[in-house]
Amino acid sequence: MPAISVNNIIKTYDKGNILALDKVSFDVQQGELFGLIGADGAGKTTLFRLLTTLLLPDSGTAQVLGFDTVKDFWAIRKIVGYMPGKFALYQDLSIIENLEFFATVFNTTIAQNYHLIEDIYVQIAPFKDRLAGKLSGGMKQKLALCCALIHEPKVLLLDEPTTGVDPVSRKEFWDMLDRLRARGITIVVSTPYMDEALRCDRIALIQKGRILDIDTVEGILAKYPKRLYAVRSENMFRLLSDLRQYSQTDTCFAFGEYLHLSLKNGEADAPATEAYLQSRQHAQLSFKPVAPTIEDAFIELMQAQ
């Protein structure tokens, strides 16, 4: 039995005018760390709200550990830990008060389940009497995770836990998720940061309510159809304009310090392109094949739509 099974879900808002989810189907296996990767408005939050029984689908069904999200919603609420996208703790309660409150809501105590949160909680314990509203982004995130874990959920649903958080805290957060997965908790996490896809077992790329692809990161990259080149020179703006105008250019986007370029005839066009750029007198020109990243794959899938 998969931990989560979503079958052909359609969800619209505003009397059917806004299509939030368009025939979405996927399974998440037990113990898997599954990533939903997509921009704002892709439908990630809607999906989480359906899985946490807070919304009803227009059509289609979804099960969490075999329980139906519409019929068995009480059962689901007991086994699911949810961390909403917006910081959803009481800003005017302290760390310890928030944690006690959420433990009580689920009929448990901090002491009873302390082993579940221990390694996260120790990091914020020195500030346990500080109000949640006065915590930094990274600490808020840790507290929210503790609150979502306190009732020993089997499935953890995390909606954009790392948005707006600095890279150090993000990295720490993903390390924590790794440890939770090692304990057998199924985790579904959404993120707009493509690089975080690398930390997931499998990912679903989602855009405008549709799943573009579901696979492991390696699987998605292996399917990438084009030959990519990384190009850079001293004047990146001129390089970008030149390549955009160039007749054999297929796509050209800025990626970090390089431009990622694909050509209409693939490798066959490469020598001519390099020569063209040299003729445009680009100083310190670097032109080399490069492996695609998950963002390249995402862009490719978006354009294919």
């Binding site: 997509g38 948005t163 963002e295 995402f298």
Partner: peptide, 23 residues
């Protein structure tokens, strides 16, 4: 933080605008 929560294509188009502006 101009590009939080934006899809990768839009983020790149935005970056192009930044290049152009700086130029």
């Amino acid at each position: 933080e101009p590009t939080g929560g934006v899809d990768p294509i839009t983020r790149r188009q935005f970056r192009d605008m930044i290049y152009e502006t700086a130029h």
